[in-house]
Amino acid sequence: MPEQISKYPDVTLQVLKGAGAKCGEGAEQKILKQCPAERFCSLPTGEICVYGIDGIANMTQISPREIATAIAPLVPPEPADPPAAVWVEAIILGIVFFAGIVLGRFLRKRRSVSP
């Protein structure tokens, strides 16, 4: 019988109750014996255990690793470090900047010394 993951497990349980399921009422758990009683639903056709996002680690049919593997292609990769050329450009720009400061001070002293 299935274990289900829902962002809103309480709403899912209410929908199942509305469809005639016995949820959280102490119904006999024949297959999903490790399901928390408050998350368990029994229907004439089977059993369902509804987990919230925070209960994924407690699931017995699907492991967190399987879930991570399934969603890994959907998660954008971390931004890569800038290429070495960017660092070289930054260093050259810094050298030119400081050379401009030194040249500016030199020219200012020269102007103030001339008659």
Rank of each mutant, 00 (worst) to 15 (best):
S63I: 04
L74D: 10
I48E: 07
A27M: 02
I31Q: 15
Y8A: 07
G104K: 00
P83T: 06
Q29G: 09
G20H: 05
L93W: 11
N58E: 12
S42V: 03
D10V: 03
V102L: 15
K17V: 01
F106N: 00
Y51I: 07
S63R: 12
V96W: 09
E47Q: 13
F98R: 08
R108N: 11
P77M: 07
C49A: 05
A19I: 02
L107I: 03
F97I: 07
E38N: 14
V15P: 05
A70T: 03
D54Y: 00
A72S: 14
A85T: 15
P9N: 06
P115K: 13
S114H: 11
A80H: 03
I95H: 00
V50N: 08
A84R: 10
I67R: 09
A21C: 05
G52V: 04
M1Y: 09
V113L: 11
T60D: 05
I92H: 01
R105F: 10
I53T: 13
L13T: 06
G100T: 08
R108E: 14
L107M: 03
I5T: 13
A80D: 09
P2T: 04
S63A: 13
I101S: 02
K109R: 15
C23Y: 01
P73L: 12
I95W: 02
S6P: 00
D54H: 10
I5E: 07
R105L: 14
Q61L: 13
T45H: 00
I92L: 15
P79M: 04
Q29H: 11
T45C: 00
I91C: 05
M1G: 03
T60E: 14
V15C: 01
Q14V: 02
Q61D: 09
P79T: 09
R65E: 14
L74Q: 13
C49Q: 04
A90C: 09
I91R: 09
C35A: 06
I95S: 08
P82R: 10
K109E: 14
P77K: 15
D10A: 11
L74C: 11
P82G: 08
D54S: 13
N58H: 11
N58P: 00
G26C: 02
A19T: 04
M1R: 08
R108M: 11
E3F: 05
E89R: 12
V102R: 12
S42K: 14
E78F: 13
A72V: 06
M1K: 06
V88H: 14
Q4V: 15
R105W: 08
L43G: 06
Q61I: 05
I95V: 15
E78W: 08
T69K: 13
I71L: 07
K22N: 08
E38W: 06
D10Y: 01
L16S: 02
I101F: 08
G24W: 01
E66F: 00
